[in-house]
Amino acid sequence: MRSFAFTPAESVGQAVSAQGGDGDAAYIAGGTTLIDLVKLDVMRPARMVGVNRLPLNDVERLDDGRLRVGALVTNTELAHHPLVTAHFPLLSQAILAGASTQLRNMATTGGNIMQRTRCPYFRDAAAACNKREPGSGCDALDGINRMHAILGTSEHCIAAHPSDMCVALAALGATLTLVGPHGAREIAFGDFHRLPEDRPDREHEIEPGELITHVTLDSPVEGAGAHYLKLRDRASYEFALASAGAMIAVEKGVIREARLALGGVGTRPWHAQEAEQALRGQPPETVNFEKAAGIALRDASARQHNAFKIPLARQAIVRALEKATQAATDS
């Protein structure tokens, strides 16, 4: 592994000031993405600021019902937290569908939001990749693109966003708190991940030196049922070919509230808002779930090896909505 300087921080202020808005300095928390990519020579920070000792480990329910999660809460702790399993089961299911026990024990909430794509061309320093080396081209477009995205792609990048946790956050709705050299600000989770367009290297709406300190989940939808369905090449410890996170609340036989987000198919955590809108006010029946799936995938565009993801995602959406409905209580 290449060498770098390391500064451990004990407070958010100290971390932000040590990072100093320097593009060559990286925050490190769990390190499960960063160390991997430094070893591959894909990320080359000259300095790292250690943030794993900052006091950002709390999960607390706010008076308005929202859940405020410290950025350093590990994926394991968040998935098993009693407030999460009781009120946000979709988040718990999605986290536990991702990675391995060891990685979930290390990886943090903030780090999961910042994790990089698993595109093999991005991870190979010898390949052309506009995300890693802007302007170098994209070897995935005509390469082995079986794992790549079908939604939100551009002629510059088709890399899929890898996170399961982020699919749940997209469906549930959340707000990120960022602290940087110019103070603190909030941003909606849905606005944080960028589409690749012509700048796939700019993945997030984050300013130099900013650090995610908290993720605040929107108030839970009362009586809703939730289901995270992840389809992959093996039963565990594998990235999604397609995944669907669904939440449904039913009242007097019609859908009062629907939430739907997709993983493994989008260049960012894919929030299917039009499909949600189409479901509201409809009976929770398979025919309506199929219509919603059609809407969610209307703009899907496949390359040579990943066309199978379109029917796969369609089926994942329908099945996840059915399962979420079964888990809902009609009020």
Binding site: F6, P8, G31, T32, I35, D36, T76, Q102
Partner: peptide, 20 residues
């Protein structure tokens, strides 16, 4: 895999200086 404060972790992805 080793256990760090009781939890199973991948020692290859953990900087030693973060184990203070």
């Amino acid at each position: 895999t080793v256990r760090v404060d009781g939890q199973a972790m991948n020692a290859c992805l953990r900087l030693a200086v973060m184990c203070e």
